[in-house]
């Protein structure tokens, strides 16, 4: 058997340069900034698309990105990883219902921001939970994402029937009060979410890497988005969240995401530590930096 050729450190560094050039091209032409994304997963996704495309090199891919917008849209979808579910991590939703909702019930008006909402499954989950708790009509939900294509999908709220079957189980484990089927209509092999769930949702494009504070929020939900960012970009986003939250406002992260390795840890205190629900806290003067 013929041994595959070796891959030297030099070849690996050339690949790294090629990836940086690709990201620079994307930024300059299309305005999407992936330059501060986590290197390891970005690299895997670029090489995955390279393998699928049959192109000889990352440079060739860069050339194509510069000339072929349709190809860029495909690559954008790879780079942004729009994987989500309704009631993903049901224990999180259960904890939110038990620990956060009772506090929100004391507020006259609630603003919730889902940052990086992808195709919208989690924003509909939140909308359903607020309906069931009688809070929806005094809530405003902001669903933002960097990618306009997935926002359009989020707005439609159409999902595959196979996926929704699994979401039903999540909904039940999340402490849902009726049946998920009460919130959608089946059509052909898909389902469309009850359009009334959208009446207080605003969909908007927002890039956590480049855009600014979004408004005074009571809750920010940003789950499994920060895992794709490098430490500096995470730092920027944590500051953005801190500045966008009311005092005592809630920050909800993905189950593997942590404030522990950031310089913003002191600004938040855990509410349900293992479900990554935090609250913005008032810093004493001597604590401020």
């Amino acid at each position: 058997m013929k041994m595959p050729e070796s891959v030297t450190d030099e070849q690996v560094s050339i690949e790294d340069i090629e990836i940086r050039l690709l990201l620079e091209a994307i930024y300059q032409l299309y305005g999407y900034d992936f330059r501060c994304y986590s290197k390891a997963s970005l690299r895997r996704r670029v090489l995955h698309r390279l393998g699928m495309s049959g192109m000889p090199s990352i440079m060739a891919m860069t050339e194509r990105v510069l000339r072929d917008q349709q190809f860029f849209v495909t690559l954008l979808n790879d780079l942004t990883v729009n994987v989500t579910e309704m009631f993903r991590d049901p224990e999180f939703y259960r904890a939110f219902r038990e620990e956060v909702i009772p506090v929100l019930k004391t507020f006259p008006f609630i603003k919730i921001w889902h940052a990086g909402c992808a195709t919208g499954e989690e924003i509909y989950s939140m909308a359903i939970m607020l309906e069931e708790e009688g809070l929806y009509d005094r809530a405003m939900l902001y669903a933002t994402d960097i990618d306009k294509n997935v926002l359009a999908a989020a707005k439609k709220g159409i999902y595959s029937y196979a996926a929704v079957k699994q979401y039903s189980e999540n909904y039940r484990r999340a402490g849902g009060k009726t049946s998920l089927a009460d919130y959608y209509t089946a059509k052909y092999d898909g389902v469309i979410m009850d359009q009334r769930l959208k009446r207080n949702i605003v969909f908007a494009d927002h890039d956590l890497a480049t855009d600014q504070v979004f408004g005074e929020m009571n809750v920010i939900v940003c789950r499994n988005v920060l895992i794709y960012f490098d430490r500096d970009l995470q730092q920027r986003v944590f500051r953005l969240f801190r500045d966008s939250l009311d005092m005592g406002g809630y920050l909800c992260l993905g189950t593997k995401e942590s404030l522990r390795f950031s310089a913003c840890e002191e600004h938040f205190e855990p509410v349900v530590a293992d479900m990554r629900i935090f609250r913005k806290r008032q810093l004493m003067k001597r604590e401020t930096r």
Partner: peptide, 13 residues
């Protein structure tokens, strides 16, 4: 995944 700065990196790809 292992990131270049020897930290753990996750992906939902």
């Amino acid at each position: 995944l292992v990131d270049v700065d020897h930290t753990v990196c996750y992906s939902l790809a």
